[in-house]
Design a protein around this nucleic acid. Structure first.
Length: 439
RNA sequence: GGGGGGAUUCCGGAGCGGUCAAACGGGGCAGACUGUAAAUCUGUUGGCAUAGCCUUCGGAGGUUCGAAUCCUCCUCCCCCCA
């Protein structure tokens, strides 16, 4: 891959706000040569979520700068569980799940990184299970454990926190397994240093302790010099957790998070965060982003930053079709969505637009006879928990049936209301939709 | 081992025999305003129903015409002194 970046990697991540801590000498060695660097990814699920994207983007910029990116699937470490930032011991993964997750994750990574053979500095994917599983316990504690003192290991913040559990009732102590985590991760670094001449490990700032265990191991065992670079943990301006909605994580897998929801997540970014995210999650250059920011400040209601952000991410992760469908869905759901517009949708588009919306089915017979809105939404279906809730919503003018406000509690719902003789579109407030399908 | 305090509706927290479905704050939901933002304002926030009824105040009993409120036992939390 040719160099895409006008500036070097460090300057690039600096202006993008992706640099938290960096080990002295890192900048120099990156300038001298193209080197290899890796980030670790826990294969705890068969999909990445957007919380992983910072690390992935680090690798992407790294590759664009002409260096060699390595993505490490933490098959072995995933079986242990990183104590950093966790107050509880983690569930362990079995081997079959692990391989499945690895495959799925690689597919997703290839949307960001160039793994192709003809790429000069192609990305590679490794799984630390492949070398750790062959390591016998005895060999490990003799050849690796020998070089690092417990004193060194317990000085790490992540370990310290868990050891002081007596003044924190939530903490549950630290098992030996978890305690060993940093050593295993440290050995990964050593392994990659030997096998792939990997001189740099990157990750979130919570990984600093684990990464430096690796550089320390390399120094002691191989008299080698390896480097570390971390990026700040992503925050939201309102203090909330990044990447989560009330429904949970935002996944890259369209089965887990529909492209529409994915698109909407980025569209809903606050002004305060949009510029920051644009820098971190897209490869737009400095000039482009500055122009966008300027445009945005002149006409903030257009929300050009959010639109660009959503566009770039959705295109990259889900492709053109999904992106366009997401826009179409957004226009119907938030724009001047009318009954007529919805009526015109063919079944396929309808399903795409309302793809992530909860569905309920009822017998058509019920509508033929007519039913009150209360029985329909709280009795025959569980769109709402209780009839009182429906009553309240109607009173507050917050309920729409087929894109039209439903204001008369006495009105019966019948076949007449069905769109395309098949379904009803229920909307609560502005954003929350449900679909009732007759059968 | 001794002494004391507490458990209330999603959370925090009032209520201390009837006027309690339970103050107030937070959160949630909706409306107005807007940019699918933020802030603000308004309404609403146990269930069923037009008045009214039913189920809720850690659990089980009891006193009373009437109990979240009083008594007994149980469970769980917290504090102080050893």
């Amino acid at each position: 891959m040719q160099k895409f970046l006008s500036m070097n990697f460090i300057d690039e991540v600096k202006w993008r706000g992706m640099l938290h801590t960096i080990m002295p000498g890192t900048e120099e060695i990156l300038k001298e040569n193209n080197i290899a660097a890796y980030v670790g990814i826990d294969p705890t699920a068969d999909s990445l979520h957007i919380g992983h994207l910072v690390s992935v983007m680090l690798l992407k910029h790294f590759q664009r700068a002409g260096h060699n990116p390595i993505a490490l699937i933490g098959g072995a470490t995933g079986m242990i569980g990183d104590p950093s930032g966790k107050s509880q011991e983690r569930n362990l993964l079995d081997l079959k799940t692990l391989r499945h997750n690895q495959e799925s994750i690689k597919k997703q990574l290839s949307k960001f990184l160039d793994f192709s053979e003809n790429c000069e500095n192609k990305a590679i994917l490794v799984n630390n299970y492949d070398w750790m599983s062959r390591f016998s316990f005895l060999d490990f504690i003799r050849d690796v454990g020998k070089h690092i003192s417990v004193n060194y290991m317990i000085a790490k913040d992540s370990v310290k926190k868990r050891m002081n559990s007596n003044d924190d009732k939530d903490a549950e102590g630290l098992s030996f397994t978890e305690f060993s985590y940093q050593l295993v991760q440290g050995y990964d670094f050593l392994h990659l240093y030997k096998e792939h001449n990997c001189k740099l490990q990157m990750g979130g700032s919570d990984q600093w302790g684990n990464i430096t265990t690796g550089t320390e191991l390399i120094r002691r065992m191989l008299q080698g010099k390896a480097y570390a670079l971390t990026s700040p943990l992503i925050t939201k301006a309102d203090g909330g957790k990044f990447g989560k909605t009330e429904k949970g994580n935002i996944w890259l897998d369209p089965e887990k998070t529909s492209p529409y929801e994915f698109y909407q997540f980025w569209i809903n970014t606050s002004d305060d965060d949009a510029e920051k995210y644009l820098k971190i999650f897209t490869v737009l250059n400095k000039e482009d982003i500055e122009n966008l920011v300027k445009e945005h400040s002149e006409a903030p209601h257009i929300r050009i930053l959010q639109k660009k952000l959503a566009e770039r991410l959705t295109l990259m992760v889900h492709g053109k079709n999904a992106y366009e469908t997401s826009i179409a869905a957004s226009q119907i759901l938030f724009g001047k969505g009318t009954k007529e517009q919805v009526q015109q949708l063919d079944e396929k588009t309808f399903n795409a637009v309302f793809g992530g919306v909860p569905r309920f089915s009822i017998k058509k017979q019920i509508l033929t006879e007519g039913i009150t809105i209360f029985d329909l939404l709280a009795e025959e279906t569980q769109v709402f928990k209780s009839k009182g809730e429906v009553r309240r919503l109607i009173k507050d003018k917050g309920l729409s049936l087929n894109m039209e406000k439903f204001t008369n509690p006495d009105e019966q719902v019948t076949n007449e209301h069905l769109i395309n003789n098949k379904y009803l579109v229920i909307r609560q407030g502005k954003k929350k939709y449900s679909i009732i399908i007759t059968e």
